[in-house]
Nucleic acid binder design. Structure first.
Length: 272
DNA sequence: ACTATCCCCTGACGGC
DNA sequence: TGCCGTCAGGGGATAG
């Protein structure tokens, strides 16, 4: 499931390969992937150049010449990558962008079809406000973290997953961050001291940076803009490791449902 | 206002 | 072998 590091990995790859290219045409197999009607989507993109590739939280933005743009959220199984232009669409490829003068085309694949493209009628900053996204998780500071978390009595895990609180964390990194901080996912967010919030903010930044350096985590579906897997899955300490020994104390990693999500933690290191 | 739960969709997996 | 139920989870909608 693509979270901030995976989306950042894709953004960096696309920045290097498609910025400056012109969209020759867009083809579609599954119109439900596009929020706007597909004909209108296609009309807006055709013959526009890709000026910028941006990321905020888990959103990817393509800013186009002439002031328009698109927002993409990959949700669970979305993939966006370059393939040779002559390759045929498989049954899970729903959209493709032909790029003028390029031997490659950009394709969108999504097994579960949860991902969405949206036409931007405004600049990305306004879209971010409209979606009520909190500060980007990579840019958040200690003070903001403390202030925002102190406002809710929900479980810390639920607060970290809430994109209006902090944009970019998903289930995998939330568990890994709480493990590294030795805090229980069930702990009430408002109970965090200023000092603990500062440590948490530092941990969020450190873990996301490490994951970006290793090109993200591939559990099942994530691939970068060239269709390659990430390299951070080997660095995971608790996510997906129910029953395995905690790397720190040897206690078996537990799995519980918190905030409606499968949550992995060490019952000993993360007692409170 | 806040919080919890359901739902979208497909594939993987376990039980029988 | 095959069928069926369950699970995976981001975020929007809805209910309480």
């Amino acid at each position: 499931m693509p979270e901030l590091p995976e989306v950042e990995t894709i953004a960096r790859g696309l920045r290097a390969s498609i910025v400056g290219k012109k969209i020759e045409d867009v083809r579609c197999r599954c119109p439900c992937i596009v929020k706007t009607s597909f004909p209108s989507f296609r009309r807006h993109l055709k013959a526009k150049a890709i000026d910028k590739v941006l990321r905020y939280g888990k959103y990817l933005f393509l800013v186009l010449s002439g002031g328009s743009g698109i927002a993409l959220h990959l949700r669970m199984t979305g993939q966006i990558f370059l393939v040779p232009r002559e390759r045929e669409m498989d049954r899970h490829t729903h959209l493709e962008f032909l790029l003028q003068g390029s031997a490659n085309k950009l394709v969108y694949r999504d097994v579960r079809k949860f991902g969405r493209f949206e036409l931007l009628g405004c600049d990305p900053a306004e879209f971010i406000r409209y979606k009520k996204l909190g500060p980007d998780a990579l840019a958040v500071d200690a003070e903001q973290t403390h202030t925002r978390l102190s406002l809710t009595r929900r479980a810390l895990k639920a607060a970290l997953l809430d994109q209006s609180m902090l944009a970019g964390l998903g289930n995998i990194y939330a568990d890994e961050i709480l493990y590294r901080e030795r805090i229980s996912p069930l702990r009430s967010a408002s109970e965090l001291t200023r000092k603990q919030a500062a440590s948490l903010a530092a941990s969020i930044h450190a873990l996301l940076s490490e994951a970006i350096e290793k090109n993200g985590t591939t559990i099942s579906d994530f691939v970068n803009s060239l269709g390659e897997q990430g390299g951070f899955q080997g660095a995971l300490r608790v996510y997906g490791k129910e029953g395995e020994p905690c790397p720190s104390c040897g206690t078996r990693i537990a799995k519980r449902r918190v905030a409606g999500r499968g949550t992995y933690f060490c019952p000993r290191c993360q007692r409170r």
